[in-house]
Nucleic acid binder design. Sequence first.
DNA 1: CTCATTATTGAAAATGGTTTTCATTAACAT
DNA 2: ATGTTAATGAAAACCATTTTCAATAATGAG
Lengths: 157, 157
Amino acid sequence: MPRCRRGGPPWWEPRFQEAGFRLTISRQAILEVLSNTKEHLSAEEIYLAVHKNYPNIGLTTVYRTLELLVDMGLVFKFDFGDKRARYELSPGPAGKRHHHHLVCTNCGRVIDYTDFIDEERELLRRTETGLSEKYNFKITDHLIQFYGLCDECQGQF
Amino acid sequence: MPRCRRGGPPWWEPRFQEAGFRLTISRQAILEVLSNTKEHLSAEEIYLAVHKNYPNIGLTTVYRTLELLVDMGLVFKFDFGDKRARYELSPGPAGKRHHHHLVCTNCGRVIDYTDFIDEERELLRRTETGLSEKYNFKITDHLIQFYGLCDECQGQF
DNA sequence: CTCATTATTGAAAATGGTTTTCATTAACAT
DNA sequence: ATGTTAATGAAAACCATTTTCAATAATGAG
Ligand SMILES: [Mn+2]
Ligand SMILES: [Mn+2]
Ligand SMILES: [Zn+2]
Ligand SMILES: [Zn+2]
């Protein structure tokens, strides 16, 4: 289980300095877990993963840390309809690209996709401009998700 | 507080017949409330509204009925990030047009918009086609929401 | 219309993800 | 190294939603 950082410190360290938050073991461990997965983990799943190496870190701290990380913009929080929040490390400086999600309503699988993002971006840009003018609404974020049946679940219906 | 139906029975009545569900007082009352509001009510708000005219209808029934209505496709269920589900009557045969939402992250206000829906539709159509092919994912639904600050909340920051 | 069937309902209890409380611990500036 | 105080863990609280189960009422048959 090799560490990801092949060189200097993780890109998120300066962010803690700037914001004046302490870079604790718990926070590093949680960020480490998030940076080593491609999945969209729930708080409890993160807790369990962290717990293997740091058995004394509690679920409460995981929740609190995730809230902080979301506020800091280091982590994104999603609702895929399975009754629990799911988290994903922000792309970061040299990370993956911005993406949206396909959610299987049968098995819960979540697929990241970056295809058509450019077209989406263009539409979003125009929509945001138009809506800002018409409703004087200052748009700061958007959510786009597609729901349906994944490859494996289509046979069952 | 005039009833909306100026003529025949509401458009949703046949849907119950077809599906074999009983058209009870509770269900009619809840649909009536939903059809007489432009807001996106929570289960409890619907319960309170129904309760004025039918004090014996319980919150449990409201939850159960909403679940049924969502399953029947008569009602849409949304998550605007305020920790409780919110509901909206489906456009129906002669109803309002399909729309998406602007959500104020400060005061929670939700604005329906239908502008740019045609462009969105076109993008969605192409995206759905592309994603279906690439991931063999059968898309049945989508969610688009914009977040930001509404007219009144912009001054505060 | 009357009755039997059974879907539907209400009240109360349970559920479960998340948040709060509060005493203890540890990060880090000095 | 030490003091200040942010951060933490365990337990309890929170709260929207769901489940339980006995009672009720919508519907169809007669
Ligand atoms: Mn993702
Ligand atoms: Mn709406
Ligand atoms: Zn699936
Ligand atoms: Zn606002």
